[in-house]
């Protein structure tokens, strides 16, 4: 199958796969930092299941990259430097104040909004990827969409429940929505090779993805009687172009700590 790709198409597939893999990998990492700290034990179980699924999705994409001649999947996930990463900046930002082992004062509202918006965006992309011209990617999308369905359902319940609760919860949620929207442009961006990606019919163009996203999320905001502006920026950088924050560098140091202690060893 790979030999059927032109050089330009192969470049485009690789670029898109890095975006998809790095997105799922880093948000799953942020989810794993929440372990043991979620608002209640039932949520701890559900959230860690979602993070685990998401890490599984990242592993599938890294595997596809490995098969396209990139380095092995553990190297790709653990050893690439911050400026080589293609994930959206929103997904790398810390969960809140503190460290996952010391005085974590994580922000549940930000986590809910970030995961809800991300799951909605992922859903739009996955639906489009099911029709991808690159069959391994289309097959991966079919598998991922089955789990994503439940993730989206989970975050929708949290999103609507906390906004409906009013009071402090609603205040925190609206603040988190503003924070997420300020970074969200990056999430639905296809990066520097967007033209090639679309030309190769790997996924629909950005503007169409964005339209679907707006339509889906607007319906939810309507039900909640909250105005939806849908104006996104990339406040802290454009991750698709390799621009990242200090939060990502710190995360990479932590998640690669054991790996880097002996990259040649079998763990």
């Amino acid at each position: 199958m790979n030999e059927l790709l032109s050089t330009e198409e192969k470049r485009a597939v690789i670029e898109l796969l890095y975006q998809l893999a790095d997105d799922d990998f880093i948000i799953s990492y942020r989810g794993s930092e929440w372990l043991g700290l979620a608002p209640h034990i039932e949520e701890d179980v559900a959230f860690s299941s979602i993070s685990q699924d998401t890490m599984g999705h990242a592993a599938m994409y890294y595997q596809l990259l490995e098969e396209l001649g990139e380095k092995d999947r553990d190297y790709l996930s653990h050893a690439r430097k911050s400026n080589e990463r293609k994930n959206a900046v929103l997904l790398e930002l810390v969960n809140g104040e503190g460290h996952y082992l010391h005085e974590p004062r994580y922000d549940w509202a930000f986590t809910v909004v970030r995961h809800y918006y991300y799951s909605q965006a992922k859903k739009v992309k996955i639906e489009s990827l099911k029709q991808s011209s690159y069959p391994p990617l289309a097959a991966a999308a079919v598998k991922i969409s089955m789990e994503l369905h439940y993730h989206l359902m989970h975050w929708t319940v949290w999103f609507t429940q906390l906004l409906n609760a009013g009071g402090e919860a609603k205040k925190r949620m609206l603040k988190a929505i503003a924070k997420v929207e300020a970074e969200f442009e990056d999430v639905l961006s296809l990066g520097p090779l967007s033209k090639e990606i679309v030309k190769a019919q790997l996924i629909e163009e950005e503007s169409r993805l964005l339209l679907s996203f707006h339509a889906n999320i607007n319906a939810v905001f309507n039900d909640l009687s909250i105005p939806y502006k849908g104006e996104f920026t990339s406040l802290s950088g454009r991750g698709r172009f390799g621009e990242h924050t200090e939060d990502l560098s710190e995360a990479l140091n932590t998640l690669g700590e054991v790996y880097h202690s002996d990259p040649g060893a079998v763990w």
Binding site: E33, M55, G56, A59, S77, Y100, L101, L255, E257, W267
Partner: peptide, 14 residues
């Protein structure tokens, strides 16, 4: 929990 984010490969992380 300490070791979940630090597990040294994708397989070990999962």
């Amino acid at each position: 929990k300490e070791w979940v984010p630090k597990a040294p490969s994708l397989k070990r992380k999962l």
